[in-house]
Design a protein around this nucleic acid. Structure first.
Length: 785
DNA sequence: CAGTGAGCGAGCTTCCGCTTGACTT
């Protein structure tokens, strides 16, 4: 039995630290929080100064039991949880549960897992900081109150569905997405004309080179653009001025959780949860430091190693020591930045994991490398027939520096223009040099709304607002999707024509071209439910929904942590007005139906409404109390109650069509995921190409049914258990079909499949399950671009 | 590859933040 028990949060950390501290220390992990508020009720005695009722959750009982035993048999317990609010609270909970005195038990902290840092920490133990613990407790209780008082309000006031939820973080995340969607829906695109001129000039070697210059301001109308081109007819062009300026680029800071998620999304297309899963693997296998962090700091030893690696591989010129500071005030910096454990590039087996590792490795090294040095050239080109002038920009890299390894990706919203290409180099030009115009073009461009959020850009926004923590970004995004407030999907673009005016050989021509616009991939869209719930919460609980709410209360938690505020008082100040809002809403708010009147059906005069049904957004024509029953239709995924038009709604009523009965069963026609189909007696029938689902008639469907039946009869050898198990004849021989799964018959049964018994079939299925088939076929090759 | 859809009421749901496996396919 070791003399000392050290408790940390993460088991991977425990292993490393145990190696460093040696055999006198038994280093164990508590796996994060070991107690939480009681789950079945509020878990807070609000009238008794917000006294919390903590319990050990079931899945933590085992860990707690083991730690209790170890703590009893050891001389000294060291609490080495993370140095942040949550870590401090975990230490206090450990005291409570393990029967340790928080006023004498040793509390140690370190920000990096290196021998000197840990040895230093052991020499300087302190006590649990109760102010910090109280700040955490206030945070926890406030979140519970908000979540467990708001959610039931939704259950009462929303007429649609169960298991709705609201919370300080998730509801604001949904609000961001809802507001962005409406911004996009209300966006009015305006077009401008951008002028580009292509010149040829002789460079130093007498070689003819083409380069591009941009026009003066953008023109607001096609007439203005044409006027300008007209002016240029017969003009000559000469270089008026050349400016050469040095420029520098600086590397980005090492990764935090949020920047890693953003960059892996931009460069590798990973979802935030995929990034975290792979990072966890790298952390557990000792390849990277802890992956849930908000710090951009690198440890001293890491800095030394990075320097050596950069100097060895690229030379002195490429090294530049840098210390980054966190821009984010809400950062708690209990860990280092995410960096590779070893400065030399390690090999990682799995391809996806390796890509993430390389990203981390490159970003970390680049952060300690020199600036890239550029030379930017701007040439002004005069037009003999106009006071306007054209500008040509060129960029030449003089020294690559950190760009040798890494360049940070850019978000869509930061890219101002869609045709923002890399600037090339310009030929060496002389002032007054005459230039030959090959072609001048004025192209119509349209302004674009802000793009919809991706998972990663939402994380970025939440972090900027100080909402959520590194450990919760990925789960929050999962939650809002699971609750049905938000959907991740692609959007097809629409074709748009744009005009191009060209001036060539002193002739002006206008042509039209087409572009695909508005296509988006893996973006977050609010659902109707998300919009309705957000509107409701905004109306009745605007203080909690305020984007600055978290930042404000974080300030108060800081005051509690500094001993300037008492936690119960802070909670009381929050609770009184909040609870009043809850009561007021329960009493006065109407049940929300999420209904929108679309108009009336011209043919029948019946009203048409779009609303939330029990199964999601729908449209309804006619009323329940009408003599003729109302008809209903489900909205398509891409439609929403807020934006659907009357015409679109009427279109939805055209299908499904009921064609009448065939053999006492209805025949209906609809369009499904795989195209138009008919349905009869629980069977589906694909329509033939020449059949139109809107006009096809019953007699045309009947042959399909007959055809399928004979095909089935011909193929069926034997059937067991009400068609659950079928023996069928396939093109490669007889096989067994159970539900959607097919099973091969063993060789000795192939000759007489009709002799199979139920028992034999079941044995074949069991056998197949016990010995799963060999690996799946290799993944399909990506389509060539 | 579906359609379902009243209103009532019983009985249910829910938060954020800290950590990983134990599950099944």
């Amino acid at each position: 039995m070791a003399k000392n028990l050290v408790i940390v949060e993460s088991p991977a950390k425990a292993k490393t630290i145990e190696k460093i501290l040696g055999s006198d220390y038994d280093v164990r992990s508590c796996f994060g929080h070991i107690r939480d508020l009681e789950k079945d009720a509020m878990g807070i005695d609000i009238n008794n100064n917000f006294k919390p009722k903590y319990i050990v959750p079931e899945d933590k009982e085992k860990v707690v039991k083991e730690l209790k035993k170890l703590a009893k048999d050891t001389q000294e317990v060291w609490l080495a949880t993370d140095e942040d609010r949550e870590g401090e609270a975990i230490s206090w909970h450990l005291c409570e549960v393990l029967g340790l005195d928080p006023y004498s038990t040793k509390r140690i902290v370190f920000h990096e897992i290196t021998k000197p840092a840990i040895e230093r920490a052991v020499l300087k133990p302190r006590l649990v900081n109760m102010d910090l613990v109280h700040a955490q407790q206030a945070r926890r209780i406030l979140d519970r109150i908000v979540g467990f008082e708001l959610s039931p309000v939704l259950w009462r006031k929303m007429s649609m569905r169960n298991s709705l939820s609201a919370g300080r973080v998730q509801s604001v995340a949904v609000r961001l997405i809802v507001e962005r969607e409406r911004e996009i829906n209300h966006f009015k695109s305006v077009s401008t004309f951008k002028v580009e001129a292509y010149f040829t000039a002789k460079d130093i070697n007498g070689k003819s080179v083409t380069f591009k210059a941009e026009g003066p301001s953008r023109f607001k109308s096609v007439e203005d653009a044409e006027k300008f081109l007209q002016q240029c007819v017969g003009a000559s062009y000469s270089v008026r001025d050349i400016q050469v300026k040095p420029a520098r680029k600086t590397p980005a800071a090492p990764f935090t959780t949020s920047t890693l998620q953003q960059e892996a999304s931009r460069k590798l297309g990973y979802s935030v949860s995929k990034t975290m899963l792979l990072a966890q693997k790298l952390y557990e296998s000792g390849q990277i430091t802890y992956m849930r962090t908000d710090s951009v700091n690198l440890s001293e030893t890491a800095m030394t190693d990075l320097k050596a690696a950069i100097v060895n591989n690229y030379g002195d010129k490429y090294y530049q020591e840098r210390k980054f500071k966190n821009k984010n005030e809400s950062a708690q910096e209990a860990h280092e930045a995410i960096r590779p454990t070893y400065a030399t590039n390690q090999s990682v087996d799995d391809a996806d994991t390796r890509k993430l590792y390389e990203l981390i490795w490159k970003r970390t090294l680049a952060s300690q490398m020199s600036d890239a040095e550029l030379e930017k050239t701007t040439a002004k080109i005069a037009i003999s027939t106009s006071p306007e002038e054209l500008t040509a920009n060129g960029e030449v890299m003089k020294f690559d520096g950190f760009l040798k390894l890494y360049l940070e990706g850019r978000d869509e919203e930061d890219v101002a223009d869609e045709d923002d290409e890399q600037e090339g180099s310009l030929p060496l030009l002389a002032i007054k040099q005459q230039l030959d115009l090959r072609e001048m073009r004025a192209t119509e461009r349209f302004s674009r709304p802000a793009p919809r959020y991706t998972e990663a850009s939402l994380v970025k926004k939440l972090e900027e607002l100080g909402i959520g923590r590194p450990s919760t970004y990925a789960p929050t995004i999962t939650t809002v999707q699971k609750r049905g407030y938000v959907e991740k999907r692609d959007k097809e673009g629409i074709k748009r024509t744009f005009r191009i005016l060209t001036l060539k050989n002193d002739q002006i021509k206008q042509v039209e071209d087409q572009e695909n616009t508005g296509a988006e991939k893996s973006k977050l869209f609010p659902t109707d439910l998300g919009m309705i719930v957000t509107d409701f919460l905004n109306q009745y609980f605007n203080s909690v929904m305020d984007y600055n709410f978290t930042a404000r209360i974080e300030g108060e938690f800081d005051e509690i942590a500094n001993g300037k505020k008492v936690w119960n008082n802070m909670l009381q100040d929050f609770y009184s007005p909040f609870h009043k809002d809850v009561e007021n809403t329960l009493e006065n708010a109407e049940r929300v139906k999420g209904e929108r009147q679309l108009g009336v059906d011209e043919a029948t005069g019946k009203p048409i409404v779009a609303r939330m049904g029990r199964y999601g957004p729908m449209i309804q024509i006619g009323k329940v109390e009408d003599e003729e029953k109302p008809r209903f239709a489900k909205l398509k995924q891409t439609q929403s109650i807020e934006t659907i038009t009357l015409d679109e709604a009427m279109e939805l009523f055209r299908l499904p069509r009921n064609l009448g009965q065939f053999e006492d069963q209805d025949v209906t026609v609809n369009i499904g995921r795989f195209g138009p189909y008919a349905q009869h007696d629980k069977q589906f029938y694909s329509l033939k190409k020449e059949m139109d689902p809107y006009t096809v008639e019953l007699d045309e469907i009947a042959p399909l049914i007959a055809e399928k039946r004979t095909a089935k009869n011909e193929r069926t050898i034997k059937v067991f258990e009400k068609e659950k198990i079928q023996v069928l004849k396939g093109p490669y021989g007889p096989y067994l079909k159970v539900g959607l799964k097919n099973y091969k018959l063993p060789k000795e049964k192939l000759e007489h499949p009709e002799a199979l018994t139920v028992e034999e079939c079941k044995a074949i299925i069991e056998e197949a399950k016990a010995n799963p088939p060999k690996k799946k076929a290799p993944p399909r090759k990506k389509k060539a671009e």
